[in-house]
Design a protein around this nucleic acid. Structure first.
Lengths: 106, 106
DNA sequence: TTTCTATTTTGCCAAATAGCCAAGGACGGT
DNA sequence: ACCGTCCTTGGCTATTTGGCAAAATAGAAA
């Protein structure tokens, strides 16, 4: 594998990696409904605000979300809605796995 | 967030996480074309066979690939083709990011 | 200006991950 | 049976990640 191809896969992996944490997945899901400030997300997630802020910076760094400061708050919103398509596939993987589980028990 | 919802996000994150490594991304891409034995993938990836084998077990564990032993070789193939949809979205994120980069330079 | 509130950054620690090597198991060929 | 090949597992180390708490920053309001 040449280095150009390799760095391309690395760039792609970085974006997927940004989606690979339960809290960040929740945040993306939530932002698909409407924009949210850090304090709202912190409230919903239930972790320390600094932790949530870090998760948001990972998502921002990957280019998945946007942030806009308004007054004293920072609002985040989804920049690339296509990531929502991940969900339906992931659901179907889970369903397929569950089916397999069931057939093993039988 | 109740614990049921939480564990659901954890399960989803696990699947995405399995896709979040450049080598594993490459493998999935490759398996979308045809099944491959570990030795072929090892050859293509260029890492130690044990490393590739471990990556494959992560993918298998997430339910993304299948394995079948035939003779002395183990062939892996894609179990859930919908993961390929990740690629097009990731490409578009990269493109969007590149555009933004360009407009900042301007 | 000072104070308050929302957010980010930093430091630190524990846990998870990725890689290589060595060892071991399974199978086919001789 | 023995050997060689293919693959997986365990052990080790280096690196990354996730979380909290404390300190720093930015803007609003007083």
């Amino acid at each position: 594998m040449d280095s150009k191809t390799k760095s391309r896969y690395e760039a792609k992996a970085k974006i997927i990696k940004a989606m690979s944490h339960p809290t960040r997945l929740f945040i993306v899901d939530e932002l698909s409904r409407s924009e949210r400030c850090v304090c709202e997300l912190t409230e919903m997630v239930g972790d320390d605000m600094s932790t949530v802020s870090k998760h948001l910076s990972v998502l921002k760094n990957a280019g998945i979300v946007w942030d806009e400061k308004r007054g004293t708050q920072v609002f985040y919103s989804l920049r690339v809605p296509c990531v929502l398509r991940f969900f339906s596939c992931v659901e179907s993987v889970l369903k397929t796995n569950a089916k397999e589980q069931a057939s093993l028990v039988r």
